[in-house]
Nucleic acid binder design. Structure first.
Length: 595
DNA sequence: GCCGTTTTCGGCCCGACTGTTTTCAGTCG
């Protein structure tokens, strides 16, 4: 785990423990914010841990946090954290993961009943003593019981590639309900996060009851969590999902539907898209400009009146569209994937970010020669139909035996087959390449003579993914510095929610990639998304070239491109730095410059 | 604990829903 991740984790725990020991809520929030800022920070904080001035320059880090970061760098621990940990058992913190249990209730259970773990919580439920607590009735206990079961069976986050089709189907279904005039999904899914905790759907309708009824009684609904005037929450079954994602027994996802007034559409969409931190920033901005922002619109501020402006019939300054609200706040429109409070409110209007339609080339694809499902021509046909000018065929190299990797003689024959296919197929250039294993010592899986015969070399780590960070860094640096390499494929080898992968010093890799004119890949498969968003941002800040590739094995894999583009946007990638957006002359000239 | 385009002190975003209450606390996003 990186330095930033370790320190950020300690601040998260400090925040929780402060809350559970009745600490000042603003200190609690400040610690939670520091945790997020530290984890999100694109550069490694360890080298500057002793430089208080540099740390304090980071928004959200002040004197106190800077001193604690320095203390951690020096001693490997933070005394305040350790002292709190003496007081608060691990199991008490874990209880906060139970939906519906917040700090107040957990503290009450702990103080009054000595409940210090989820197991102990089950105990007081079974013996009924939990009912002796104030504000604790049969219904609340039932909800807690179900939340524990949910947490223990399938409490994990869903990868974006699983959640997105569910959300799209849900939005389509709700759009067909009589009276519904507008419907869209929002939340972290709209922001393109790699995994999501729940699905948010917004609906404008003339017939609210029909929408509520449809949403809450569909076949896939396991439980209705809430059914109010403007908000309904349900737990949906994931059963019947196909593909490579295997949901566990009782796997489920929460979906929330919000019924919003038409004139508030933009404000509501913005509000429920988040992130929470981005919204807080916007509200602060509104207040500073003498206005107040909520999910109903942007209103002129009327100090002293506690009734919300929308209930007093105050005319909003903006609200029907997101664009109008950003404009009224004097801001450039912020695309949803950037809304993470990572400096996006300071963006100028001219800055461009890569979009799906910019992508003109696929540079990482497999065919039946190794472990793909398609012939060269078949894959080229799909690439062509998507408007691509170039497809690189990059089958696996010899060490990837499981993936039917090509021995040198097979690769030579394959290069010939690719050249022939390129002659036959009109309207797209098919390049001969390879996804070459980066071996554990950092060397490549073919000799230089053979690599030089290829148009495109994608070098990727496949084995030895549990190596320690220093070894991982050394291994990847060696591959980046190899003069025949164009692209480093899925640089960490992680699998979302399944395998951590390598944790190299990303700053060093990026610096080397810039120096050697090598592109780092965003592997667009939703199980990988590797580089991840924060890595992309660091690379973009350094001016590093980026490739967005689908790592195509089957026809449907081309559809994963959108997840790669969302990840790129979350990292503020411009078309200029993304080699897949370049026109055919420029891309081919760059590839040839390494031959 | 952090922060400042009226502040270095005194603030710190806003609303909906549930369950347990007789007017509201706790949780969530």
């Amino acid at each position: 785990m990186s330095f930033n991740a370790r320190v950020g984790g300690l601040f998260d725990r400090m925040s929780a423990m402060l809350e559970l020991t009745g600490g000042d809520r603003f200190r609690v929030n400040a610690h939670a914010k520091a945790a997020r800022v530290i984890k999100d920070h694109t550069g490694d904080l360890e080298p500057i841990a002793g430089d208080a001035k540099a740390l304090i320059a980071i928004e959200g880090i002040g004197k106190g946090t800077a001193a604690k970061i320095a203390e951690f760098a020096e001693t490997g621990t933070i005394r305040e954290h350790d002292e709190l940990a003496q007081k608060v058992p691990e199991g008490v913190i874990r209880m906060l993961d139970v939906q519906g249990l917040g700090p107040k209730t957990v503290k009450l259970l702990w103080d009054e009943k000595g409940v210090d773990s989820i197991e102990a919580l089950k105990g007081v439920i079974v013996d009924g003593s939990i009912l002796e607590l104030p504000r604790m009735g049969a219904k609340t206990v039932e909800n807690i019981t179900e939340s524990i079961a949910f947490l223990e069976s399938s409490g994990q986050r869903l990868p974006i590639g699983v959640a997105m089709p569910i959300a799209e189907a849900l939005a389509e279904r709700m759009s067909g309900v009589p009276g519904v005039t507008r419907c869209a999904f929002a939340g972290s899914l709209r922001r393109g996060k790699e995994s999501i905790g729940d699905i948010d759907i917004l609906v404008v309708t003339d017939d609210p009851e029909a929408a509520r009824e449809s949403f809450c009684t569909h076949d896939s609904v396991l439980k209705v969590l809430a059914r109010g005037e403007s908000k309904c929450s349900v737990r949906l079954s994931l059963e019947g999902l196909g593909g490579r994602f295997k949901p566990g027994a009782n796997a489920a996802v929460q979906a929330d539907m919000r019924l919003v007034p038409g004139p508030s559409w933009g404000a509501a969409l913005m509000y429920f898209t988040g992130s929470k931190e981005h919204n807080v920033r916007l509200r602060e901005r509104a207040l500073a400009k003498g206005m107040t922002l909520n999910e109903y619109g942007l209103f002129p501020e009327d100090k002293g009146d506690p009734t919300p402006p929308q209930q007093r019939g105050v005319a909003p300054v903006a609200g029907e569209t997101e664009e109008s609200i950003y404009a009224a706040l004097g801001l450039a429109f912020v695309p949803p994937p950037l809304r993470e409070d990572r400096g996006e409110l300071s963006l100028d209007k001219e800055r461009a970010f890569v979009v799906l339609g910019d992508i003109r080339a696929e540079l990482h694809s497999h065919t039946t020669a190794s472990d793909g499902d398609m012939s060269i021509e078949e894959s080229a046909g799909i690439a062509k139909s998507r408007g691509f000018h170039t497809l690189a065929v990059t089958d696996h190299s010899q060490s990837s035996a499981i993936a039917n990797g090509l021995k040198p003689d097979r690769l030579r024959a394959h290069i010939g087959a690719i050249r022939e296919a390129n002659e036959r197929v009109e309207g797209i250039t098919i390049l001969a390449g390879s996804e070459v294993d980066i071996l554990v010592d950092g060397s490549l899986d073919y000799d230089d003579e053979l690599l030089a015969a290829l148009d495109v070399v994608v070098a990727s780590p496949h084995a030895g993914l549990k190596a320690k960070p220093p070894q991982a860094t050394k291994r990847l640096l060696k591959a980046i510095r190899h003069p025949l390499v164009h692209i480093i494929g899925h640089p960490t080898g992680r699998l979302i929610e399944r395998r951590a992968g390598l944790d190299p010093a990303m700053d060093e890799l990026i610096a080397a990639a810039v120096e050697c004119d090598v592109a780092l890949e965003i592997n667009a498969h939703w199980m990988r998304l590797d580089l991840r968003d924060t890595h992309v941002r660091a690379a973009v800040d350094a001016g590093c070239k980026i490739a967005i590739d689908c790592d195509v094995h089957a026809p449907g894999d081309y559809d994963n491109l959108r997840y790669g583009v969302l990840t790129a946007q979350r990292g503020w990638l411009s078309p200029e730095l993304c080699i897949n957006t370049w026109d055919v002359e420029r891309l081919h000239a760059w590839l040839a410059s390494k031959r």
